[in-house]
Design a binder for these strands. Structure first.
Lengths: 339, 339
DNA sequence: GTGAAAGCGCTAACAG
DNA sequence: CTGTTAGCGCTTTCAC
């Protein structure tokens, strides 16, 4: 494979000049053109190891996730790749799924081999030691949907989303609105805290409504769990509406309602959060989070920090988009309205 | 950050010895212990760039996918990570989703920066130029679910799976069995060819059954598409069973049947392929593909080739596992049996 | 704007 | 089994 010396020879310049021309540093237009032509002719591609060793930059960024086999993280990754690949960056995946040793491996070794220029971490909850390890890298970190000390953060306002969703139901005339959402364990794994629960609660209270004990039903963030919770809830003291902490939970609720012979939205309104791929199919009203957009934003912010290492960490909160579909209506089956 | 010279000094040996001890080469136990202790004390971690530059190995492997936001690929990736991370390898993702330029970027540049030791490609259909580019790398490639000249391959026998699924229905007494599956475009994107179609067809023919024109219904590999196809199909000349080319299609069919007031399996049996995460919830009978297992196997095969560069490419075909659930029964609603 | 030269931190012969 | 000695292929001062 051709190396930089071959290019230099063919272009009739020094290797230093080739390096500069290829990296967009000072070089006369004429020289640059010669170098580019020579590089193209030889099919020259820079060696990332040599370049990285000499410069300290690797053009690799890390993406750390609790697990990759959940649509949210896969979508975020798609967004990240779409901006990073086009800028000539590769992304290395650090998947914390699996046993503890996989996690230790990542923090103890992979991250420290100086093979990345920066890191994007999604929904990661770090131990104190891990935070130290991350800071010791001295590399920019951007966090998606979770707070990491000193890192730029991209997130959505979970409490606000929950409030909006609840207010949508309230404005339709519902007063008996159940919340089906994450138990403590799951919520913390996703770093949602109890924000969505809190948002629901405060909207209900602001409307002067009692939130009976029966209002909260625990479910993991998936369809089966939403289904089970709704089955239990609907057999109980039936509400006229459900606010589901995620679309998958909401879809589970819709399926449960259907199996119980209830019509959505006539007998039961349901609103979720996410805008999952299946939500349009099921007609689920929801607040869209746009994970790919979060990934793109995170990638841009990271790139900006790479260009400008001195900059202070930012915190960007994204505005969710309300998507009203056919799962919500006035209680009792009145015509569907867009709140 | 401590470098190899620091470790050498502390351990009282040369840098070469440190390198050997750390890489599992010849070194006396006593020396190795000293080196390891020194490295641990200093928190030393090898520089992948320096090591890669000197040795030509990077301990990075690439994973190339048509898109990552499909459960199959995410699951494969989980399997790959579980074996590679523990062996000290990082995986960098090449996502071909997005525009052409993203793809060109990957083949023209990312892959060639010598930043990976090997590549795993899942369901990738390559152009002749791309195959050339890949071969030019001179690095081991393992392909999952698709054939790449000269590469080790891991796959499942799609025709056989389709035959088994169809035979399951036949053995239950069904004779009118529709196929809902991929149209040409989708099938080729996943490199399934028409194998599943062929398997269904040959099983039907072997049973002496006519496959009317109405037997094949086109659908993409997702729930909405399966739903739409089933709606059309069931309004038509109703079969007693459906063989769905994927579980997502099958789930769509189940939902459509339910919406039409049909009971599954009493009025309609449905069998899919995959063992999707949701299939247990829906009670869908299926043939499990175990994508994570495919990923693990691919990773092991790649590692083996890295250790033994001379070895000839292998071809491993995995055996699917039959998972009988509640979506299949004798026609007419007899008791469910496990084929 | 460009060239010469000195490394970046490691590994791989080659001796011993 | 271990030390010495060259590089691996680039980037980056520092002069000019």
């Amino acid at each position: 494979m051709a190396d930089i010396a071959d290019v230099a020879r063919l272009a009739g310049v020094s290797t230093a000049t080739v390096s500069r021309a290829l990296n967009g540093k000072t070089a006369s237009p004429a020289t640059r053109a010669k170098v580019l032509a020579a590089a193209a002719e030889l099919g020259y591609v820079i060696s990332s190891n040599a370049s990285g060793l000499a410069s300290g930059r690797t053009r690799h960024i890390g993406f750390m996730v609790p697990f990759i086999d959940r649509w949210f993280f896969a979508d975020v990754l798609t967004g990240i790749e779409s901006v990073l690949l086009s800028q000539g960056y590769d992304v290395t995946l650090y998947d914390l799924q699996g046993n503890e040793s996989q996690r230790d491996q990542v923090f103890g070794s992979s991250l420290r081999r100086a093979s990345i220029d920066g890191l994007i971490a999604a929904s990661i909850e770090l131990t104190p030691d891990e935070i130290l390890a991350l800071r010791a890298l001295g590399k920019p970190v951007v966090s998606i949907g979770g707070y990491i000390e000193g890192a730029t953060a991209v997130d959505v306002d979970n409490a606000r989303m929950a409030t909006l969703a609840t207010e949508h139901l309230l404005s339709l005339g519902h007063t008996r609105i159940a919340y089906v959402g994450a138990g403590r364990t799951i919520a913390s794994a996703f770093q949602l805290g109890d924000a969505r629960y809190d948002g629901w609660l405060s909207a209900m209270r602001a409307a002067g409504l009692e939130v009976e004990e029966t209002g909260f039903w625990e479910a993991d963030f998936d369809i089966p769990s939403g289904y089970a919770a709704a089955k239990a809830l609907l057999a109980h003291d039936r509400p006229t509406a459900i606010f589901a902490a995620s679309d998958e939970i909401g879809i589970g609720c819709m399926l449960a309602a259907r199996d119980l012979g209830l019509r959505v939205p006539d007998d039961l309104s349901i609103v979720g959060i996410d805008d999952h791929k299946l939500s349009a199919f099921f007609g689920l009203t929801t607040l869209a989070q746009d994970p790919a957009g979060q990934g793109r934003l995170a990638a841009h912010l990271l790139l900006a920090q790479l260009d400008n290492p001195g900059a202070a960490p930012e915190h960007r909160t994204l505005t969710p988009r309300f998507v009203v579909r056919s799962s919500t209506a006035r209680p009792g089956g009145a015509v569907h309205e867009t709140a």
